[in-house]
Amino acid sequence: MAQIIEARAVSKRFRQHRRFPGFLGALKTLVTAEYTEIEAVTDVSFAIAQGEAVGYLGPNGAGKSTMIKMMTGILVPSAGDLTVLGRVPHRERQANAREIGVVFGQRSQLWWDLPVRDSFELHREIYGIPRPRFDENLKSLSSLLDLEPFLERAVRQLSLGQRMRAEIVMALLHDPKILFLDEPTIGLDVVAKDAVRKFLSRVNRERGTTIILTTHDLQDIEEICPRLIMVDHSRLIFDGETAKLRTALGSARRLMLEFAADPGPLELKSARLTSDDGLRKHYLLERDDISLVHVLDEIGDTTALKDISIEEPNIEEVIRTFYQRRNAELPPR
C-alpha cells in the first residue's frame, strides 16, 4: 500500500526564554536573555499507508500535538524529513490543507454566533467543493451523525457533543484523504463518545479515509485504531498493532485460581502470587510463553480447583504499568 505520510528522524525543538525560580529569579528573568531548548519531538520516524487508522498516544507533553501540527503544516520541523501526500506540509501548507481534514477537540472551527450551516457553506467556498458533492456529503454525513436537526441552530446553542459532531462533519465535507483528530472525544459524555467512535470507524472503513488520532481515552484507540504509535518524553517508544502493545511493553496477564477448599499457600514457578484470599488466589503471568497448560501442570492435583481464568490486561492497564515502571526507573530530578 502507498505510504501517504512519511516521517524520517523528525525533531522539533522549541526555544524558550529561561526562567529563574522565586521572586528574585523573576527579576533576573526580566533582564537576562538566556534561552533553553525544549525537545518536543526527538528523532521520530514512521510511515502511514493510505486507509490506515492510527492512534498517536502519549502522556501530556510527550509531543503528540506538536507532531500533528507538523503534519498539518502549522509548525516547521527543526530537523528530519516529513512528507504528507508527497508534500512538505509547511512549504505547501495550502495545497496540503486541501487534502486533509483537521479536528481539534478543544478548538472550534465553527462560527459561534451563526447557524452551523453557515460555517459549512463557508467551508464549501474555501475548499471549492462542487455544490452537488457538497449536498451529497452533507446529507450522508449529517444523517450518520444525526446532525440534521441542528443545522439551522446557532453554534453557541449546541451541546459539546453536538458541536463536536458538527466539527467532524465539517472536516469531512471536502473528502479529505487524511483526517487528523486531536483529542476528538475530550469532554464528551459516554453516548456522544460512542457515536463519534462508531462514526470514525465507519468513515475509515467505508470511505477509505486515513485517520490519525491523538487521544487520552484509550477506548478511542481500541475501537478506532488497529495501529498504535506511542511516544514518551518526545521519543517514539512503540509502533505496531494495538493488540501487540502488551507484549511489546511487557505487561503481565492476570491469573485467578478458585478452589472449593483452601489449599493453603500455593507458590508457582510459572506465575507470581499477588494476593491470596484463601479460596481465591491471584497471580501475574509475567512470561508470554506460559500458558494455562503449564499452570495446570505445575498445580498437579486439580481436583480441588473450582474455577480458573486468565485475563489480558486492557490497554489502559498496559500503559499505566509502563509509565509507572518508567517513572520508578527515572533518576530523581
Partner: peptide, 14 residues
C-alpha cells in the same frame, strides 16, 4: 494563546 490560529493554518486560505 488559545490555539485558534492553528485552526486557520489548516485551511487552504491565507
Amino acid at each position: 494563546r488559545l490555539g485558534t490560529l492553528d485552526t486557520l493554518l489548516t485551511k487552504p486560505i491565507s
